[in-house]
Design a protein around this nucleic acid. Sequence first.
DNA 1: TCAAAATATAAGTATTGACTTATATAAGTG
DNA 2: CACTTATATAAGTCAATACTTATATTTTGA
Lengths: 124, 124
Amino acid sequence: MLGDPVRRRILEVLARGEHSAGALADVIGTEFGISQPAVSQHLRVLREQGFTQVRADGARRLYAVAPAALREADAWLDQFRGFWPQRLDALGTELARGQRERRQLVDGAARDEGPPEGRQSVGA
Amino acid sequence: MLGDPVRRRILEVLARGEHSAGALADVIGTEFGISQPAVSQHLRVLREQGFTQVRADGARRLYAVAPAALREADAWLDQFRGFWPQRLDALGTELARGQRERRQLVDGAARDEGPPEGRQSVGA
DNA sequence: TCAAAATATAAGTATTGACTTATATAAGTG
DNA sequence: CACTTATATAAGTCAATACTTATATTTTGA
């Protein structure tokens, strides 16, 4: 599933906010040199496996990250957390900041919004 | 990679400690109804992709979780941590406990050691 | 040193999966 | 309406992958 680099990349883009299928077809299609249907098929898989949510906006379909499935992956990793050193250093910062609000970029196609500000994990 | 249920299951078993290739072939082979070579091939993939480490013990090969690759997956998930509610409640406990030491079950084949005690994440 | 045990590799096959082009469907727009 | 835009689906192809059985390799122990 997420072994596929195209799908991973799609989610990375969606981590920055909502994007239309067309915008994704442009960005991802260009990056990987694949067609619109190819991207659309990846979107279908992501949708069906619960990694994304979609809402209609006229003829467009706006995709966004759906937490559930990714969270499940995260939960699965719990059993291995004891195997690597944790990053407690970032904790204070994170606690102070509180839970970060998500932006809702309605589309954005070619336009690049730059890297997301540091949303980071702390780990156990 | 980890989209494969057999490989995920192998790692789950290894999360409880070291197991020989034969023990894994028994457990996994039985659970999934596949042959020794099939399991061995999965072990090869996991090894080559850096998810496991192996050491020799006579004719046996003892497999264990290799943190690096899984940790990378965990790091990748960082960018999505803002999308789901965090479990800060577990933090105190975890801090108090300090980093959990890993057991080294030398094999264990059919014998089931029961669930690992709660090794949990806290998240950002 | 030879047979058995533990594991890996080889070679073949069937399924899955990631694309392609072509086309269907649905929604704006003149 | 007809045309265009936005997206999804269909159908086919090719490569990757997850098995199988058979066998090679290494180690141990009688």
